[in-house]
């Protein structure tokens, strides 16, 4: 999926090169490079503590790199200067934030806002877009996420699967160039997981550029153009899903897949 319009030669939507990140004395990312091209769906897999979330948090500016570089297209957010990451201006960061969306494991919806307001508030207040346009787009997204009739409900009235789909709509309403998902279904039971995976597949089919951290191997195999296996703060192996998941080359990848029973 997605291959049709994928342009391998196009400039990466996001480019992280040689990223290092430590918390105190603990090195969590030890030189990770990840570039994602327009329309590509990348699945990131790997054992707990391998640094997958930290990588997404660095990409979304929730954490600062210690070393390495981060760019969104022509926007250079951080560049490496002699082994130290140097960040650009606040304006560059603000511009970069308009280019990605992040979906959290536990949704992090705003509990006091209705579904509609959750989706429309940031486009209105951050991007200063006109109300009519934003609401029309929100209604489209609500329909696409299968959330018709939920417009005026608040998150606590929705199932986990519905809440996660609202949070996907909230991120999409900002018209991001790339969407990050950090284990979007691991708080959900199998039935609700299927609902959420369905909409992510739909986005993949529309050539949305995505990076999905997931433990769902069958989903990764089916949807991802590329699978990245991370362990111990490094990318151990990457390639097409059929190769990495079905015929892993590295011993650590084999051990991990064996352990989770694939």
């Amino acid at each position: 999926m997605g291959q049709a319009q994928r342009r391998p030669d196009a400039r990466p939507v996001v480019s992280m090169v040689n990223v290092r990140k430590s918390f105190g004395d603990v090195a969590v990312l030890k030189g990770v490079t990840l570039e994602v091209r327009p329309g590509e769906t990348v699945a990131v897999i790997g054992p707990s503590g391998g640094g997958k979330s930290t990588l997404l948090r660095c990409a979304t500016l929730l954490e600062r790199l210690d070393a390495g570089s981060l760019a969104y297209g022509d926007l250079e957010v951080a560049r490496d200067e002699g082994g130290r990451a140097v960040y650009g201006s606040a304006a560059v960061e603000r511009a970069a934030k308009a280019r990605f969306g992040l979906v959290f494991q536990n949704y992090n919806l705003f509990p006091h806002y209705t579904v509609m307001k959750n989706i429309t508030d940031a486009p209105r207040c951050v991007q200063k877009r006109p109300r009519a346009e934003v609401e029309a787009q929100a209604r489209e997204l609500i329909a696409k996420m299968g959330l018709e009739g939920c417009e005026d409900k608040v998150p606590c009235q929705l199932s986990g699967g519905q809440q996660q789909r609202v949070s996907i709509a909230r991120a999409l309403a900002m018209n991001p160039k790339v969407m990050y998902f950090d284990e979007p279904t691991s708080a959900l039971d199998p039935e609700l997981t299927a609902e959420v995976l369905k909409v992510i597949k739909l986005l993949a089919a529309e050539n949305m550029t995505m990076v999905v951290v997931t433990h769902e191997m069958s989903f990764a195999r089916e949807v991802a153009d590329r699978v990245v296996f991370m362990d111990g703060g490094v990318v151990v192996e990457q390639g097409p899903a059929a190769q990495v998941i079905d015929h892993p080359r590295e011993a650590r990848t084999q051990a991990f897949l064996h352990r989770i029973g694939e």
Binding site: L62, K97, F100, G101, N108, F110
Partner: peptide, 8 residues
Amino acid sequence: EAAEVLGY
């Protein structure tokens, strides 16, 4: 964090 990522 959700607010920060949305650019608030």
